[in-house]
Amino acid sequence: MTASPTHRPVRMVFTTRAGGASASPYESFNLAHHVGDDPTAVDANRARLADSLGLTPGALVWMEQLHTNTVTVVDSAQSDPVEATDALVTTTPGLALAVLVADCVPLLLADQANGVVAAVHAGRMGARNGIVPATVAKMVELGAQPSGIQAVMGAAAAGRNYEVPQEMADDVERRLPGSRTRTSQGTWGIDVRAGLIRQLMSLGITAIESDPRCTIEDDDFFSYRRQGTTGRQAGVVWLNSEV
């Protein structure tokens, strides 16, 4: 895991697959309950994540991610995942928004001046169908300014390895310009992060950082495309209530 310094108004964290309690094929820091892992191991991993971040496990808010373009505003902790949503937005300090991925793009957004943060599950379908513009619009409703939003993307499937049929690449390109690409083998592919960078800039967001690592080729991360049955790493963002 890597984290920003403790006393920043906003904190953002991305996990890897290392350092947890889960056994193969979920070894070892799997944070997802829906993939078939031992629930006790997942709970232990989530508790370790919260402890390492200086949070209580109840401060973490998870999603029932379904590759939709649905955005949900949350203002309090809850024990169950937020149903049928692929983005969470909050203005509540200390409430940590979590997104689970294993090739999809984990996108964290924050306007620290106006106190609005979001966690977005930007998979191929969600990104194609506008989950990011919908999230930014919701943040603006809550007082954020696009020029003040910082966007950080974690490790995800890179275009050089994300092979798809040409029809799919063309379809996503029409909805998410800049995402169609060629793989290292010369076949058609999709680079979701490249498309999202262009989309974020079109929305007025220019403070953009993107982890270039590819989950498909890097064993430090879970990858559905590489393994099929596997765990999930997370991106987490929250407003620091200690500042």
Rank of each mutant, 00 (worst) to 15 (best):
R11V: 09
T15P: 12
A21F: 14
A32E: 05
A32F: 01
H33C: 00
D37C: 14
P39R: 06
A44E: 13
A47M: 01
A47D: 08
S52G: 15
L53I: 02
P57R: 02
V61P: 04
W62A: 13
W62R: 10
N69I: 00
V71M: 04
D75W: 00
S79E: 11
V82S: 12
A84C: 03
T85V: 13
V89R: 04
T90E: 07
T90P: 10
T91K: 11
G94L: 09
A96I: 03
A98V: 15
A102W: 10
D103N: 11
C104A: 15
C104I: 00
A110N: 09
Q112G: 08
N114M: 01
A122C: 11
M125W: 04
A134E: 12
K138S: 10
E141Y: 00
L142G: 07
A144F: 03
A144T: 12
G148D: 13
Q150K: 11
G154P: 11
A156S: 15
G159D: 12
N161W: 06
V164M: 10
S179V: 09
S179T: 06
R182L: 15
G186W: 03
G186M: 05
A194E: 14
L196Y: 05
L196G: 11
E209I: 02
D211T: 08
C214P: 05
C214W: 03
E217P: 00
R226M: 03
Q233C: 13
A234R: 05
W238L: 10
N240M: 05
